[in-house]
Design a protein around this nucleic acid. Structure first.
Lengths: 196, 196
DNA sequence: GTCTATACGAAGATAGAC
DNA sequence: GTCTATCTTCGTATAGAC
């Protein structure tokens, strides 16, 4: 019952996430979301009484859950090294397929959010936090101590998000590939070390 | 003759960089820059015929050069490990002193820039590129091969920028501290390895 | 649930006086 | 070089009909 809602509603949230990915949060106006989703104007304040801020907040939640789902999906199939590889590959694919136009919507909101809308910062922190917890759990399962797993999970998310920004700005996959390679080596070493 | 200009002009660029740091690029209106810098209204299109876009572009250059200067300054005093430590410490300090409100203006513009203003993306790429080249040179001087130095320099910038976003969103220095610690270990190992 | 119309404000940019 | 309008566009939000 919680947050499902109508098809129109869902399409609006997805359209908002897509626009934020490409143009940033501030540039994601209600008009743009409407034209992207094909939703009727009258639906806006019916579905989102909180207006634009609510729409952006839900877009962050939507994008965050989408990525979390991919991590969970990959988690069943291999070691943390493979999961991080897939995490990187997912962003890489999005980057290439969008012609280096699409970044991470969660990060976009993080950068633009100010003190006027703490809910947005909270939504961002929650999304990042969930990705972190999923990765951390995988590392613990692989034998790492809780502290080290915690730190490495943070490191992976920071490095990949940062590389995504660099790759997008420089319009080449190099940074993301470099970071993927370094992370692979680092995680492999950490897991081997913990097994000894 | 090149880019010096009047005091008013300089203050406007610095104010723009400060606003972008805190509020993002889109939220940095001309009005805001004027009130922050105390510059007169009539100066805007006199000093910046390209309007707001030019102002943002120069703010990116200004911020990029500021950080480059700090890297160069730190470079004279120690190994790459120390330089990266200081790089992290600089961001940490800014984060804490601003109450977790200020992030990196270059990254902020990177995230919000769209196809309408390729000059902005270019300015961002150039700033990141310069930081990268400075770090890479330090790593090469420390004995690393060019390829590995290149990759590690990218990794450092990506990880620190990402950690800055995480720390700001979660309003705690943990992510930045974690990343700083991991980078220290990674760089130390890479340098030791290259010496053997 | 959806539509049109409109109020209201913010922001970029320009024109012309001083 | 700087100031004061002013034009125009855009975006949020609301009111009220259907």
């Amino acid at each position: 019952m919680a947050a499902s809602g109508s098809g129109t509603r869902q399409r609006m949230v997805a359209a908002a996430a897509g626009s934020i990915r490409r143009h940033g949060a501030s540039a994601t106006s209600i008009d743009r979301v409407l034209s992207l989703s094909g939703a009727p104007r009258g639906s806006v304040y019916h579905h989102f009484p909180g207006g634009r801020a609510q729409l952006v907040e839900e877009a962050v939640g939507f994008a965050g859950q989408h990525v979390s789902g991919l991590i969970v999906e990959a988690a069943g199939t291999g070691s943390p090294v493979v999961v991080v590889d897939r995490f990187v590959a997912m962003w890489r694919k999005q980057l290439v397929e969008s012609g280096f136009r699409d970044g991470c919507p969660v990060l976009a909101v993080a950068v633009e959010s100010d003190e006027d809308h703490p809910e947005l910062t909270d939504a961002v922190a929650e999304a990042f936090g969930r990705w972190h917890d999923l990765l951390k759990a995988l590392l613990v399962d692989a034998g790492l101590g809780a502290g080290r797993a915690d730190q490495l999970a943070t490191f992976v998310i920071a490095a990949v998000e940062g590389a995504l920004v660099l790759s997008r700005a420089q319009r080449r996959t190099g940074p993301l590939d470099d970071v993927g390679g370094e992370l692979r080596g680092l995680l492999t070493a950490a897991i081997e070390e913990s097994a000894s």
